[in-house]
């Protein structure tokens, strides 16, 4: 289990992380969100032991993180961190040995992973010759080759097509089953929604949203109503107190409301019209993120 306890990090006078605390249990996938410059990379670096926190501590299985236990951590960085002149095999062996593995074990594990990602023929190819998507797979393999206890995934799906995203998701779930604690960071909210049970949203280094995803969405008062029908009285719906906006989405409308109690009022206005769909849904994580962070993100 990873425990991050009240960490504070200053760069000069600039506070990059502000009293951040969270826990990631064994086999749990945890989301760490925030716009660019919110303090995610600094937090990851502190967890990895690359930076010392100004205050607070980080424990993995109850022990402070230092070079005696960093072998138990895997890290997929946002930007590719591969030595592109090496072959796939050389690269994985290089990182694997640095994780304390023996070369024979690495080769054995590598074959399994290459098969899983359907790139067995690339074993002796130079990394610079691979496509971005395949480089990303290699980066992922290099981070998990040693079956880490803690895995940090910073934008792991970058450059992957939907089929390969599914392959990687499968691999992540399999590591989760092994009891690996996973910290996941992405700008693609649908991935976070699908993956994470718990999350934190960071703004200027401070956690402004913290908890289980389902609770966060439930507690977020604003809802959406999806309506499909003909000749809908949109102008009248817009006038209802508590309706914030109506957005057309292909053949249906999304009516955004301040709180759930507004939904019956909307339904009352349209019940006489020929409607084929009326669905009150929770706000998306993307909406919650934008509302909390207060701006558009990538």
């Amino acid at each position: 289990m990873l425990q991050v306890k009240n960490i504070v990090k200053y760069y000069g006078k600039n506070k990059a992380v502000d009293n951040l605390s969270f826990e990631v249990k064994d086999g749990e996938i945890f989301g760490l969100l925030g716009e660019n410059g919110a303090g995610k990379t600094t937090t990851f670096r502190i967890i990895m032991g690359l930076l010392d926190a100004t205050e607070g501590e980080v424990l993995l299985d109850g022990k402070p993180i230092d070079y005696s236990i960093t072998d138990k951590i895997g890290f997929v960085t946002e930007e590719r961190s591969l030595l592109t002149k090496m072959t796939v095999k050389e690269q994985i062996i290089f990182y694997g040995v640095l994780k304390g593995m023996r070369e024979k074990d690495i080769e054995c594990e590598l074959k399994k992973w290459l098969k899983e990602f359907q790139i067995e023929s690339y074993e002796n190819r130079k990394i610079k010759e691979l496509s971005k998507g395949n480089q990303q797979k290699i980066q992922f393999i290099s981070a998990v080759i040693h079956h880490p206890k803690l895995l940090i995934l910073d934008e792991p799906f970058t450059g992957l097509d939907p089929i390969n995203v599914e392959l990687m998701k499968k691999a992540i779930y399999s590591l989760q089953k092994e009891g690996c604690s996973i910290i996941f960071s992405s700008h693609q909210m649908e991935h976070i929604e699908n993956f994470c049970e718990k999350l934190i949203i960071l703004v200027k280094g401070k956690a402004i949203v913290d908890g289980y995803v389902k609770d966060i969405k439930k507690d977020y008062k604003k809802k959406n109503i999806l309506i499909r029908g003909e000749n809908l009285p949109l102008k009248e719906i817009e006038k209802i107190k508590g309706v914030t906006s109506i957005v057309k989405q292909k053949d249906e409308y999304m009516v955004k409301i301040e709180e759930e109690s507004v939904a019956p009022k909307v339904f009352a206005k349209i019940k006489e019209f020929p409607i084929t769909k009326y669905d009150v849904t929770e706000a998306t994580l993307n909406e919650i993120f934008i509302a909390k962070v207060g701006g558009v993100h990538e």
């Binding site: 890290f75 960085t77 030595l83």
Partner: peptide, 17 residues
């Protein structure tokens, strides 16, 4: 310089001081 520009430095330094 190569290890820095390829960002592999972060991975290496997370394993050795």
């Amino acid at each position: 310089c190569e290890e820095k520009t390829t960002k592999s430095m972060e991975i290496i330094i997370s394993n050795v001081s």
